[in-house]
Simulated scan of single mutants.
Amino acid sequence: MIFHLTMRLQNKVILVTGSATGIGKAIAKRCVAEGAKVVIHGLEADLAAEVVAEIGADKAVAHVEDLTSETCPATLVNLAVSTFGRLDAIVNNAAMVTASNIHTTDLAFFRKMLEVNTLAPFALIKAALPELRKVRGCVLNIGSVNAWSGEPNLMPYSVSKGALMTLTRNLGDTLMREDGVRVNQINPGWVLTENEAKRKREHGLKDDWYADLPKVYAPAGRILWPEEIAAAAVYWLADESGPISGQVMDLEQHPFIGRNPPKDSTTIP
């Protein structure tokens, strides 16, 4: 079987949550560049509208709603089908990223983190399954390298991404076997998104903090760009990934598990 390496998502309809900014926005734009039509989702109406305007109203439609709302998953699926006639893939990208450790985390906050980062993706997969089954579509979950253990001050976030990873492996087997629907996950490392830049500035770093990073954190001299994550996402959304399902791939510039940083490494706040 020969695949053409251009327009790899021709005529596909892809729903990307959290696509008004950051990695989700980059994925949505790359999907359109590869021939797809997209459903944009986010919490900021103005930002979602800007993405649709940038992509083109004939190739994108937006819905603004909290993903944990009971009505949101079905609304997003129905919007894709009513606008573009089908739904080929969903990208569970929307996530809550907030610093917290065992001492600063209460049960209400932990439940909220799991609700947004793990249960909402599950609810969307469940809502989308009847449409995905029709076309032997796929799911791509966007996790984090923190899923393996996580930074001390990202405890609830890391746990939520670890749970998402197990969900990916479980459904990757079950849904492929029963419905012909692939489920995979990519775990990005440190990515220069708008929100990450804002968080680091709030931690007291200068505006161009990412221009001079210790090699221990960024061997390449810089961190990842959203567009690089988007390029990797296309493979998992395209037919060229074949029947591969239930897989998790880390996207970082160094071995994340078992790595031994130099003792004189500088901590990034």
Rank of each mutant, 00 (worst) to 15 (best):
I55C: 03
M165D: 14
M96R: 15
T193H: 05
G242Q: 11
Q247Y: 03
G143V: 09
R222C: 03
E70K: 11
D264R: 07
H4L: 00
V145W: 03
S241Y: 13
W190S: 12
R222I: 02
I55Y: 04
L251N: 04
K29S: 09
G22N: 05
N92L: 02
H103N: 14
N153V: 06
N101M: 08
L15N: 03
L87Y: 07
I142G: 08
F122A: 15
D106Y: 13
E65R: 15
W225K: 10
V97H: 13
K206G: 12
N141Y: 08
A28V: 09
D46V: 01
S160I: 08
A48R: 02
T105V: 05
A74D: 11
V216S: 14
N184S: 07
T17E: 08
K12V: 04
E34D: 00
A108G: 03
N184A: 05
L175Y: 14
S158T: 09
L205D: 07
L224Q: 06
W148A: 12
L192F: 14
I2F: 11
W236Q: 04
M7A: 00
W190F: 15
P121R: 04
I268E: 03
A147M: 04
L192Q: 14
G35N: 00
A99S: 14
E178T: 09
P214A: 10
W236I: 03
E115A: 15
G143D: 10
L76D: 03
T21N: 06
W190L: 13
R136V: 05
N101P: 09
E115I: 04
V135L: 12
I125A: 12
G204V: 10
P214C: 07
H41L: 08
N187I: 09
R30G: 01
P262S: 11
G221I: 12
A211S: 14
M176I: 04
N146R: 05
S100L: 14
L175S: 06
R259M: 11
L224C: 06
Y210D: 12
D46K: 07
V16M: 04
G24L: 02
A230G: 09
P262C: 05
L237T: 11
